[in-house]
Computed example of a mutant assay.
Amino acid sequence: MEEGMTGYRRVLAHLREDVLGVLEPGDGLPPERELAARFGVARMTVRRALDELATEGLIDRLVGVGTFVAYPKRSIHVQLTSYTEEMTRRGMIPTATVLDFGAVAASDHVARQLRLEPGDPVVRYRRLFYADGEPMSVDENFLVPQHVPGMARAAPPSSLYRYLSEEYGLVIEWGEDTIEATSATPSLARLLTIDARDPLLKIERRAYVGRVVVDFSVSYYRADRYRLSVPLQRPRRPQGHRPVLRRR
């Protein structure tokens, strides 16, 4: 039985070739014992090669379920654009299914985010988003009716931010995001065609015009299709500040 670095590299090269050129996203790989017999190596060597492919993001290893070819992940760049604007910018075809649209009573959590009282009316807009025909996220927006009079009685807009700008002159200027990992509820799993308790990326956003919260949203992204990209920048030195040069 071939062991050592040579065997590991051979197994890794063959598996990478299968994942990138033969198998399709979502296809399962054989169990470790079958791969070990196929390549004539120890299971430890196969496991090491699979760990490397998982680190590269080429496969997903689900404990107790199996190993699968990973779907390519779309980067989410945190910026104030609507889903339609973001997917169009990336050259993808965005579509959406409206799940719910109209006036509802604000929950305690929504009321706190919009600075309202629990039970106050809000406009809720819930959608299932697709990119190139694949379900990607479930988004729920909440707006204060006083800021968007008559919106709850109109047809659901195709692009929310553009609609707010064109119909009400509300141009979203800045926002605050809260990002966390969560798992899919049975209802979210059905919409996103995944299994219950599969990982999701949850983003809550308060979007502002000036100092007024105009929109509060909760988005659930498929973790197997998305990754988060956050640009970072060091703060500028205060004007007039000069570094102190010390002699050695």
Rank of each mutant, 00 (worst) to 15 (best):
A54G: 07
S229A: 15
T84S: 00
L62P: 01
V65H: 10
G240E: 07
G175H: 10
A105R: 12
P72N: 01
G7V: 06
A36H: 03
S82H: 04
P25S: 13
Y220D: 02
F129V: 12
I203Y: 00
R190G: 07
V69Y: 06
P94F: 07
L53F: 04
L23A: 11
Q113C: 03
P118G: 14
S219H: 11
L228C: 04
Y226Q: 05
H109R: 15
F39S: 03
H14G: 11
G40Y: 06
P199C: 10
L114R: 00
G91M: 00
P157M: 12
D18N: 07
R47S: 15
V144R: 08
E52G: 03
L232P: 05
H241L: 15
H77G: 04
V230W: 01
E56Q: 11
Y125F: 08
R211W: 08
D60V: 15
A70G: 03
L50W: 11
Y71R: 13
M87H: 06
E32K: 09
V65A: 11
I172W: 03
T193L: 13
S219C: 07
H241P: 02
V110C: 02
G150R: 01
R206D: 01
L188G: 03
T97H: 10
D51A: 12
V78G: 08
L15W: 09
A49N: 08
G57D: 07
V98F: 05
Y220L: 04
M44A: 14
R9C: 01
S75Y: 06
A103K: 04
R222Q: 12
R9N: 07
V244F: 12
G57N: 09
M1I: 11
R227A: 06
R89H: 10
V69E: 03
Y221V: 02
E176D: 09
V11E: 14
R43S: 15
R236K: 11
V46C: 06
V213K: 00
Y168F: 12
M1L: 14
V214Y: 15
L245P: 10
V11L: 13
L50H: 12
T6G: 13
G40H: 06
P238F: 05
D108P: 06
V123I: 13
L200A: 09
R9E: 04
R16C: 02
